[in-house]
Amino acid sequence: MTVSPLVHAKALRVGYSGEPVCAPVDLRVRPGEVLALIGPNGTGKSTVLRAVLGLLEPLGGTLTVLGREVDERSADFRARVAGVLDDDAWFPGLTTREHLLLTAAGHGVTNTSTAVDAILDTFGLTSQQHVIPSALSSGQRRRLLLAAAFVRPRDLLVLDEPEQRLDTAMRASLAQLLRAEADAGVGVLLATHDPALVTALGADAVVVDETRSRRLRCDAAVAAMSA
């Protein structure tokens, strides 16, 4: 039985003011699959993810998410796609716990308090639960962004360098969490510079650069990242 991809892009062109920032990209992420975007800084990985999340209009090619054209205004899209970019955006005056409670409740999670307690523990934020995000360290704020994606339902996770600002232990925990997501049928698309994360996930990768994109199996991807 063929499973329809959650993300399917063909010759996708992305950029700003009509100018592409990388070569056309082909992507396919099915339920239960992890795909990494790799390549040097500034080659367009984050821009590709912004297009997948509906935050940037493609310049050309085709892109579908959940089997249709991307529309981040759609209630179904927002309910099924969770994204974490490198943007620290918070509600003024809300504590760490209140942010997660609001996110969980807004996405229909039942027993929100229990769910939030669990995710605070998972991301090592229990002792910071009554702190406002601006008072957290950079690494703690990153963990809060990730916690907000994991405290809500999702069929697709889109993550921009989720390993950023995380210590070694939290990176290992993140790899386990993402592997569990894929095992549960969630599709994961992430940009990363961490070959250890790609190895732990057993992820194929798409190289994004200025000349051409190409898909690599996990071992080849890790070798390319380590070269």
Score class of each variant (00 low, 15 high):
A169S: 09
A11D: 13
L146K: 12
T2P: 15
S173V: 08
L55H: 15
T103G: 13
S46Y: 01
A221Y: 15
R78M: 01
G42L: 04
S4I: 03
L201V: 02
A223H: 06
L12M: 05
V131G: 03
V21T: 06
A118V: 11
T211W: 05
G32V: 01
A203M: 02
T62H: 08
L56P: 08
P92L: 08
L197R: 10
A180H: 14
V131R: 00
V207Y: 05
A147S: 12
A105M: 14
R13N: 00
A36M: 13
E181H: 14
L102E: 02
V131Q: 01
G67P: 03
S134W: 08
R171F: 05
T2L: 14
Q176R: 15
L178Q: 05
R212Y: 11
D117M: 11
L146V: 11
E19T: 06
A104I: 14
T211G: 09
A227N: 14
S74L: 14
A118Q: 06
D117L: 08
R141S: 09
I38T: 05
E57Q: 13
V206Y: 07
P40W: 11
V81P: 06
R28F: 01
A224N: 04
L56R: 09
P153R: 13
S17Q: 02
V198E: 05
T122F: 08
L136S: 02
A115P: 00
R217K: 08
P92I: 07
P24C: 07
R68D: 06
T2H: 15
N111G: 10
D76V: 15
H130F: 07
S138P: 00
L190R: 08
E33C: 09
R215E: 11
S226Y: 01
Q176L: 15
V65R: 00
A205Y: 03
L174A: 00
L197N: 04
E57A: 09
G60T: 12
G93I: 15
A224V: 00
V84L: 08
G39A: 05
T2D: 15
V7P: 01
